[in-house]
Design a protein around this nucleic acid. Sequence first.
DNA 1: ATGAAAGCGCTAACAA
DNA 2: TTGTTAGCGCTTTCAT
Lengths: 337, 337
Amino acid sequence: MTIQDVARRAGVSTATVSRALALPDQVTDATRQSVMSAIRETGYTPNAAARSLRAKSTKMVLVLLPGIGNSFFTPVLNALEEVFSEGGYGVLIGYTRQNRSRETHYARVIRAGQVDGVLVVTGNVPRDEEFVAVPATVPMSLMFSELPGTAQFSVFDVANRTASATMVRYLIEQGHRRIACIPGAEGSLESDERLAGYQEALSAAGLPIDPDLIWRGASNFDFISGERAAARYFALAEKPTAVFAAADEIALGFMRALKNHGIRIPEDVSVVGFDDTEYAVHYDPALTTMRQPRTEMGRLAARDLLRRMEAKGEAVPTSHVRLPCELVIRESVRPLV
Amino acid sequence: MTIQDVARRAGVSTATVSRALALPDQVTDATRQSVMSAIRETGYTPNAAARSLRAKSTKMVLVLLPGIGNSFFTPVLNALEEVFSEGGYGVLIGYTRQNRSRETHYARVIRAGQVDGVLVVTGNVPRDEEFVAVPATVPMSLMFSELPGTAQFSVFDVANRTASATMVRYLIEQGHRRIACIPGAEGSLESDERLAGYQEALSAAGLPIDPDLIWRGASNFDFISGERAAARYFALAEKPTAVFAAADEIALGFMRALKNHGIRIPEDVSVVGFDDTEYAVHYDPALTTMRQPRTEMGRLAARDLLRRMEAKGEAVPTSHVRLPCELVIRESVRPLV
DNA sequence: ATGAAAGCGCTAACAA
DNA sequence: TTGTTAGCGCTTTCAT
C-alpha cells in the first residue's frame, strides 16, 4: 500500500495525499475527507524510509549507554523513551560497553544519517575520533558526565561535589569524626567529584583527611567494589565510625560483607550511599543516601534535544544543567551525639 | 558525501562502488582498491534511508517492553542489543506501558516498514487489533510470555510451573508443611503458572492446599506486593513456616515488612523468591530463589529472530523454547528437619 | 568486469 | 486548491 494506491482511490494526485496528511489546511475539507477515507480503506501507512530519504530526517534518536547491565539507567531510559516517543521520535539504543569497535559502529550509524540526534548517557564519552565530528552533523547531548571545554553539546548532570559534601556534613553533624570514603570507579568524573566533596566537607569541619580512609581502586560503582572495600575496613586498626560510599550498590555490597562478619549496621558502623536506587529503601537497614533525580534528568535532557532537533537551521543554544541531589535520611546512620 | 562523489573520485560508476561494497568478488582487485581509497578519502558512509528504501529492509528490530521501570529486563535488553548489533541490526526500543495508544503507535512503526522484526518482551502481548496483522508482515517473537494457539511466532519462556514446583518441593524437603504463596500480578500467565506449580508440589506431597495461604491480589511483581502480603501474614492466627514469593522483589518487600515488626528470617519464617535478580544475593539474608536464565533467553531469542529475518522469502519454522530454571540455595530458608 | 538506467515511496518546487 | 515533475541516494537488472 503506497501513496499511489491512496491517490488513485481518492481520485487525487499523490501530492494532495501528502498534503492532506502533512498540511491539512492547504486542502479543501472535501478532498481531505476522501483522502482520509481512502487511507482508512487501504490501511495505508507512509513508508518511513522514503520519507526519511526525502525529508532528510529520520525522527530517531540514538541513546548511547555504557551497558554494564546497570539498572541505575532504567528510570533514565524510561523517561527518555516517554518524552521522545511523545515528540514523535523513536529511540535507538546502543550499548558501548567501553569498547572501541562498538563506538565506531555507532559513529557509523550516526554518519549514515540514521538518527536526528544523539544522547550519550554515561560517564565515559566515546573517545572515537569519528565522534569528534558528530556534533557538527546532528545535535548531541551528554548525561551524567561532562566534557570540559565543549560548548557544542548540552550537558545534564548532577552537582556531585555539592551533594557529597552535604552528605558528609550530615555525617559530621551526627557526631561522626572518622569517616571513610569509597569513591567508586577510579578515574571517572563522578568518582573524582564525589571524593572532592567528601574532602571539602571534612576540611570545612577542620577534620583531617586520612589517606587510609579513602578506599580507592574500584573499577566500577558496583557490589563487588563494596565487598573489596570491606577488606580495607577489616585491615584497619582504628575503624571509622561511618563510611560514605559513592553509590548505593557499593554501599550494599559493603554492608553485606560486613554483616557476614557479624558487624551490625548502623550499631557498629554507619553507612551511606549515593543514587537512591529502588533497592536502597528496601534494604535492611534502609539506606540513607543522596537521591539523584534520574527521571527528571531524563525528561529535561530529552526535551532539550527535541528542541534542538526541531530547530531546522537556526542554532539553538546548548543547555548546561546541573541538578541538585536530595539527602534521603533513612536508617543506616547512627547518631553519635 | 554520496555514492556519486565516491564514484567520480574513483573514476567508476556508482554501480561499481555499490558492488565493491556489497559484493567484493564481482569486482577486480584494482577497482576495489581505488574505490576503497576513494571512500577513505571522502569519509563516505552509505545513507541508511536510501538503502532501506531500495532494499526494503531497515536492519532494525523493535523491542517492545512493558516499561514499568522494571530492572528485571536489564540483562535481557543487554543480551538482545549485543546479539542484534553483532548481526548488523539496530535495536529500536519501545515501552508499551500497558497503554493502548502506545501500542497503536508502535503498530504504526511496524507498518511503516521501520523495522525488519519485532520482539515482544512482556507478559502482556499488545491487544491492539493492528498487531494481529504484524506476523504476516515481519517476523515477530515473544519472550517471557506465551499466547495459546499462535504458531506464527517464536516464543521463548521459562518453565514456570516446573520451576515453582521444584522450589516448593525443596521447601517440603526442608521440613516445611505450612507454606504460603504470593503469586504476583493477578491474571498474568507467569502468576498462574507459578501458583499452579506451588499447588502441584503440595498435592504431590499429600499436603492440603489452604486458600488462606494463597495471598492473591497483587497487581505486579514488585516490592509493594510483598509489603501488602505481609499484612496477610500478620492477620493469620496459624502462621506458615515458609513463604514462596513469585518474584524476588516481592520476597524482598515481604521480608522487609516482616523485619520491621521484629520477625527474623529465616529463624521465624523462611522466604524464597523467583528470578534471581542482582539484588537477591546481596540481601541479608541472601535470598534462596529460582534463577531465570535472562541473558541466555535474550541471546536465543535474538538469534532466532535474526535467522528468521535473514531468511528472505523461504519460511523458517518458528521456535518454541521453554528453558528450565535453576534452584539457587542461599540463606533465607531454615531447615525444619 | 563494468556501465547505463530504472525505480524504491515520498515531498516540495513550480505551474496551472 | 490541485497537479506535474524532479529528485533524495541507493541497488539491481540488463547490456555491453
